[in-house]
């Protein structure tokens, strides 16, 4: 059954056509841990991503990027058009992908002090809240700090890519349909911890198996354990036997057993090499 938070998330998707189908897919999914990612904490984004974020819900403004609800964001860019007023400081942030209007409310001495440091043309790291005001997206910043180590700029944009990949895996459940991340020089192991099917992409052995292939492997292992339930004694079936009989590499067997174990379908018996069906 759906909790109220899940229901909210589903209705938030109703704005766009393709979102609806994704929502359906999520409902079908039995992988409940994936849901926890639907509303993320602080999301690294580019201005371009914000410009494409869909806005849904009038009462509770929600932005979705990649099908994931986004409220708090972090950006890195250059400050322009800084204008100070009594109650707030407004400026435009240009991160090279686009420009977005930002505002920082100045309530306390600390806010004033932090904003005094910020000047036009300066690289800053901004943390803020994504808002829509009269149909125009803007960021209400709660922290703006000058970038001191410029590697942070590269890091931020790589972080945006990483987060994009992670939410894509969460929403779609798989990475099929996209080229596997096999740019060997990049070596970006993207692993969806909530979904045991996703193999570490940095391992070339797994690159040749599709996600479906892994699912098949899970099924084969489960079927074998099923069939040999009576014949095997308390100890269950040894992993080497599974590997030999199913003609599959041992690490693939182990991966399947881990997945099945996580799902509560199998369990290890006398040691980590013997398994039985639950």
């Amino acid at each position: 059954m759906f909790s109220s938070s899940q229901f909210d998330a589903t209705s938030a998707f109703s704005g766009g056509g393709f979102m609806a189908s994704q929502a359906t897919q999520l409902n079908d999914s039995s992988l409940s841990p994936a849901r926890s990612r639907e509303t993320q904490g602080l999301v690294p984004v580019t201005v371009k991503q914000i410009s494409e974020a869909s806005h849904s819900g009038d009462e509770k403004p929600n932005f979705t990027i990649n099908g994931v609800d986004v409220t708090n964001v972090t950006l890195i860019g250059m400050v322009y058009e800084k204008a100070e007023r009594n109650t707030d400081v407004s400026f435009v942030l240009d991160d090279g992908t686009g420009r977005i209007k930002c505002r920082r409310w100045v309530n306390e001495a600390f806010d004033t002090k932090e904003m005094e440091e910020i000047r036009d043309g300066m690289y800053v790291r901004l943390y803020g809240h994504l808002k829509s005001f009269q149909g125009v997206k803007q960021v209400v910043a709660f922290s703006i700090r000058p970038v001191k180590n410029f590697d942070e700029i590269s890091f931020h944009f790589i972080d945006c890519i990483h987060n994009h990949l992670r939410s894509r895996v969460t929403v779609e459940g798989t990475t099929t349909g996209h080229p596997p991340l096999t740019d060997s020089s990049l070596n970006t192991p993207v692993r969806n911890t909530s979904n045991g099917y996703q193999a570490p992409s940095s391992n070339p052995l797994y690159a040749q198996y599709s996600v479906d292939g892994l699912k098949d492997c899970d099924k084969l292992v489960l079927d074998y354990l099923n069939q040999h339930e009576d014949m095997s004694d308390e100890r269950g079936v040894h992993v080497d036997e599974l590997s030999r009989e199913l003609k599959l590499p041992l690490d693939k067997i182990m991966l399947s057993l881990k997945t099945l174990g996580d799902d509560g379908l199998v369990y290890s018996t006398i040691d980590d090499n013997h398994y039985k069906k639950a």
Binding site: V47, T97, R99, K137
Partner: peptide, 10 residues
């Protein structure tokens, strides 16, 4: 928002 003048990473 102004998306008219991006700068590509090269």
């Amino acid at each position: 928002m102004d998306m008219s003048n991006p700068a590509a990473f090269v």
